[in-house]
Design a protein around this nucleic acid. Structure first.
Lengths: 204, 204
DNA sequence: CGCTCGCCATGACAAATGTCAGAGCGTGCC
DNA sequence: GGCACGCTCTGACATTTGTCATGGCGAGCG
């Protein structure tokens, strides 16, 4: 038998992470060598233990799964990344693939299935959940330019234009223009519904 | 030895539910007799299997954990309810306690700890996560009147005043007054940050 | 080189929003 | 009965947004 697949598990919910570690550890050919509860911690653990596959939660404090994947790609190219997510937004999948992620699955899969997918990814193949893939394709590409997305992001927590302008180092008028065009492109009624729409599609 | 504690597990994320079932099943004195992936399903399963303790996720499709707990209280009074949640808002805890829930813990606890808490709850005691309890106490009661909360709720998805007024059967001016007073009470800068704050505290 | 496109800005106008004062009505409490 | 409080409304005002026209600048492309 070949040596077992070395895993890094990162999820801020101890309950899930622990349970997953126990379940995956039951498989003969898998071994959990490190666990992390945040993005930065996951990075540090990866450096220290050089896992074969990193199983990352999409939403974690510090840095989300995609950001961690990007850093990992640079610092530890031999490590395959598998993203696990609760509610999968189409855009996240795209960003994840762009970051070199090899697998993307929702938390609705069974542990048995996850183990199989880990093996698939470790073998050098990709695995994308079919339903999430379909969503991503039907959602299409983001029509927003980089700046529009950035400004929309800053508008997300209800900040007034003046504050957004300051934080983006832009003139207030420019901010309103970007906001306006983003709202038009998204077919929204105002900036706030635009933010919601963009979030739903994973474009921010 | 006494007979084992019969558990119902409800969580829409199969990965977590399955892993949890496996881990808790390892304990000698606990046995998982039913699993559910949604609120209604949890209710049906409880009716069918009469568990001693129901471990419910707070956020589930169909009906959330608190709603299920309320129904369970009426239909199966002997069943203790333990709520498990990802991100605990203070207001949720209050609603949960009002619904007769016996335990409330974040998903950051370990499975080992969860098993202990299940035993505590089954013994007839309560267990509330200390940190969540502290948050709930410091957050205090909602300063919003019923109407203010209702209007704020309707404003949540970025609808303009005219639409809120129509949906609440109020005059636009009244809606703006309620919104204004809610914003003042919450110390927010505008309606949208007010919505966010109210959500964080669990007041809407 | 001319064209398009994204980026950044200004100014002006209309519409929506936030704020304030005031006023009537009903309910509950002392 | 008097008082407080929540609910509802109106009108007026300042501020904030949303929209549009217009301009300059630089990068990429045929």
């Amino acid at each position: 038998m070949t040596s077992p697949v070395r895993l890094l598990l990162a999820d801020d919910e101890h309950l899930i992470r622990g349970a997953l570690a126990a379940l995956l550890g039951l498989e003969d050919d898998l071994v959990v060598v490190a666990e992390a509860a945040s993005g930065p911690e996951a990075l540090a653990m990866a450096q220290a233990h050089h896992p074969d596959v990193a199983v990352l939660d999409l939403q974690m404090p510090g840095a989300d799964g995609v950001k961690v994947a990007t850093s990992l790609r640079a610092e530890l190219p031999s490590c395959r990344v598998l993203i696990v997510t609760g509610h999968g937004r189409p855009g996240h999948l795209k960003r994840a693939l762009a970051a070199g992620v090899r697998g993307f699955v929702p938390k609705t899969v069974s542990a048995q299935r996850l183990a199989e997918i880990i093996r698939t990814v470790h073998a050098g193949n990709r695995y994308i959940d079919p339903e999430l893939a379909a969503d991503a394709i039907s959602a299409g590409d983001s029509p927003l330019t980089a700046r529009e997305a950035e400004v929309l992001e800053l508008a997300a927590d209800g900040a007034p234009v003046a504050e957004i302008a300051e934080r983006a180092a832009l003139s207030p008028g420019t901010v309103r223009n970007y906001l306006s065009s983003a709202v038009t492109k998204l077919g929204a009624e105002n900036r706030h519904t635009a933010v919601r729409l963009a979030r739903e599609r994973g474009w921010v």
